[in-house]
């Protein structure tokens, strides 16, 4: 019995230790972002005189003074928002069509779409650069930034699976009442698939907020950078000030954190059967 208890305590202690190890780097980021410049150089030893150091938001102010941060974060929001919004309709419409409606050559087409999932974006990066950046002259252009991501084979596949699992009753009832397929897709299927769609939107948001390779390729102006690329440049921008760099990092993280926390609750609350209950 005591052995069992011991085991439990051991597990708890290990778990908490792991948790601390996991969270420390992020805490360090926040801590450093609040430190005055001269204290950053003391590293961890600065903790010793933690109570005499004045933590401040000066580093955050410095970031705004040194680079056009509003610009950067605005572009990032626009980038992720556009992809998520366009993707929401484009992908779900396609998925719905493949789940419910007759399409000439549908099976072959869908197999093809599924096959596209395996092609990594890295393979497409160079031709996309030559096509969009060089031929269409979309360097440093918003269209060039989001176009490659408007449709996503994986999301189509994922949403179709979800649509297939939904009961057909509501749609059939609407069909009898002479509603068009577009109406049914928009006002019945789409709301029913909310959990799956929100999942797609969150995944898209996280992926594209952190997107690195393509924004790096398609921009060569410091005024046209997403937060990730901006950070990458900011952290080698002389003079190197770690406090400022960490402040930038914190600010580049907060939007993602917020949106995730907000939407996550949504996922838990919505339920696939809600539509039928009403």
């Amino acid at each position: 019995m005591s052995n069992k208890k011991f085991n439990k305590v051991l597990l708890l202690v290990t778990a908490i230790l792991l948790g601390i190890i996991f969270i420390t780097p992020l805490l360090w980021m926040v801590y450093t972002s609040l430190l005055p410049d001269e204290e950053v150089l003391h590293g961890i030893l600065s903790i010793k005189n933690l109570f005499s150091i004045k933590l401040s938001f000066q580093n955050y102010r410095d970031v705004f003074n040194r680079v056009p941060f509003f610009n950067t974060i605005g572009l990032t929001f626009l980038f992720t928002g556009t992809i998520a919004t366009i993707g929401l309709f484009v992908n779900s419409a396609c998925a719905y069509a493949f789940a419910r409606l007759p399409i000439p050559g549908g099976t072959i087409l869908f197999t093809l779409i599924t096959a596209l999932i395996i092609i990594p974006f890295e393979t497409l990066a160079i031709p996309l650069f030559l096509m969009l950046g060089v031929k269409c002259n979309l360097m440093n252009n918003f269209a060039g930034l989001f176009l490659p991501y408007c449709a996503k084979a994986f999301n189509i596949f994922f949403l179709r699976q979800y649509f297939l699992l939904l009961p057909k009753d509501l749609e059939e009832a609407a069909r009898i009442e002479d509603a068009s397929w577009y109406r049914i897709y928009f006002s019945i299927a789409l709301p029913l698939a909310k959990p799956a769609i929100i999942t797609c939107v969150i995944l898209d948001f996280i992926t594209h907020w952190s997107e690195y390779l393509w924004p790096l390729i398609i921009s060569n102006k410091s005024t046209f950078e997403t937060a990730q690329i901006g950070l990458g440049h900011f952290y080698t921008l002389p003079p190197i000030q770690w406090g400022d760099i960490m402040a930038y990092s914190v600010m580049a993280t907060i939007p993602m954190l917020l949106i995730f926390t907000l939407f996550q609750r949504h996922i838990v609350l919505t339920n696939a059967t809600e539509g039928l209950k009403g």
């Binding site: 484009v90 992908n91 419409a93 396609c94 719905y96 069509a97 493949f98 419910r100 409606l101 007759p102 399409i103 000439p104 549908g106 087409l109 779409i113 596209l116 092609i119 393979t123 497409l124 160079i126 031709p127 996309l128 030559l130 096509m131 176009l147 490659p148 991501y149 408007c150 449709a151 084979a153 189509i156 068009s180 397929w181 577009y182 897709y185």
Partner: peptide, 29 residues
């Protein structure tokens, strides 16, 4: 007409983008 071809019409935007942004670049690569 729109209703009969709903499947195609709903799927065409995604198919078009996938063709342009995945298949064409892949062949180009």
């Amino acid at each position: 007409f729109l209703d009969r071809n709903a499947g195609l019409i709903l799927s065409i935007p995604a198919l078009f983008i996938l063709f342009l942004m995945v298949i064409v670049p892949f062949v180009m690569a």
